[in-house]
Design a protein around this nucleic acid. Sequence first.
DNA 1: TCAAAAGTGTTATCATTACACCCATGG
DNA 2: CCATGGGTGTAATGATAACACTTTTGA
Lengths: 239, 239
Amino acid sequence: MSYCYEYPRPALTVDCVIFGLDAGSVLKVLLIQRANEPYLGYWALPGGFVGIDEDLEAAALRELEEETGVRDVYIEQFHTFGRPDRDPRGRVVSVAHYALVNLEDHPVHPSSDARCVQWFEIDQLPPLAFDHDEIMVVAIECLRQKVRHEPVVFELLPAVFTLTQLQQIYEKVMGVQEGFNKRNFRSRILKTGLLKEVGKQEGVAHRPAKLYSFDKVAWERMRRKDTLGALRKAVDFDI
Amino acid sequence: MSYCYEYPRPALTVDCVIFGLDAGSVLKVLLIQRANEPYLGYWALPGGFVGIDEDLEAAALRELEEETGVRDVYIEQFHTFGRPDRDPRGRVVSVAHYALVNLEDHPVHPSSDARCVQWFEIDQLPPLAFDHDEIMVVAIECLRQKVRHEPVVFELLPAVFTLTQLQQIYEKVMGVQEGFNKRNFRSRILKTGLLKEVGKQEGVAHRPAKLYSFDKVAWERMRRKDTLGALRKAVDFDI
DNA sequence: TCAAAAGTGTTATCATTACACCCATGG
DNA sequence: CCATGGGTGTAATGATAACACTTTTGA
């Protein structure tokens, strides 16, 4: 069976940059190892072709699950990469997405289709296939941008977390080296009104931290009330 | 001649949301009137198919010039629209761009290929073809976002402008109704160090305004010095 | 009683807001 | 001399930054 058109058409794919936070608060990215030419053996972003009647986001979620077993995650399109020479096999345009997952709730099925799947720290990446290094750079930039304006970091955390964990993610994602000031971070983040206190740690060999969860309802209320403007003042996540 | 593939492929297009500022500081968008079905007679964003070896941005610029005569402008991809039913003729995925032009330097050739081309105020748009209303909404949102972090409004202005003009654009683009406070706006914008004083108005029937131009060099220095962080403090265009 | 991480209050500085009047020009 | 839009200074308030010590727990 073949499909014919009057003019040539680029192939259309989706790629996913999956950010995950592991137990030690290390920010990682999920890559798969290529089992075919070109770039055989190289690590690459999970991704693949968009079905002819498939929404772009649906395609990204499908590929994600097929190739890594990760499902039911926050995902967002961030840029479309279309340099004519980005794939040696021919013209391929890729709509890139990033996904945010927390490693505890979303275990990887290491090789749903027999490929290696592995988490890499974002500052210790191997060389990537195609233009995936470039995609990665843009993804990190876009994520940083996003994090400053919307409370998406919570997608990386377990449902319940400590302020120290939260601060560490912000530091990781923003890529700052000499962390934020602990007290200032805390007062700011609490002032947003988006955190609910939900208990205390138990069984730790030091003073137990308070546990918090993200208050989705408060966030929805906030963004509804004030689509543009006053919201910014209250909560622009300029940490 | 026809081009055949093993799997069906969506068609790939680019669409352009062209923002322009006219003499009276009114923010407008350039639309063309469709001369074919579907949506015959409706207004639509200029756009068209991506050549098989053509970069996405190049395609956007080419379509822009072919359909409206506008050339040599600031352009930027902002989102890719791919709902399976967005075009009744079949699957068409469109990489949307916005362009910023100033109407004085970029006159429109009203119908480079015999179609009507017209500027519309952004809050008085006619019903648009396809999902172009949705694209428009997203474009405005993205532009707002952009304007807050980078000095792109200058692309809308003539090379030399007054602070009043500058303030008006910010107000238009941000969509605020009771404008910014004049004094506060001025001190902030001057504090960024991105404006050069280049003269005074002449021949106006009131106190002549100082004229400014955007200091590209200073901006480049700034963004180079400090890719992340301190820049934000100095110049986050949170007006 | 020690080690480990959590937690907290206050002050100095800076940025933001809010306010109303005078200035320069052409007609 | 008037109409028009351009320009400015200052005080009150709120946000941010910088600072080091005490608390709670398990081992």
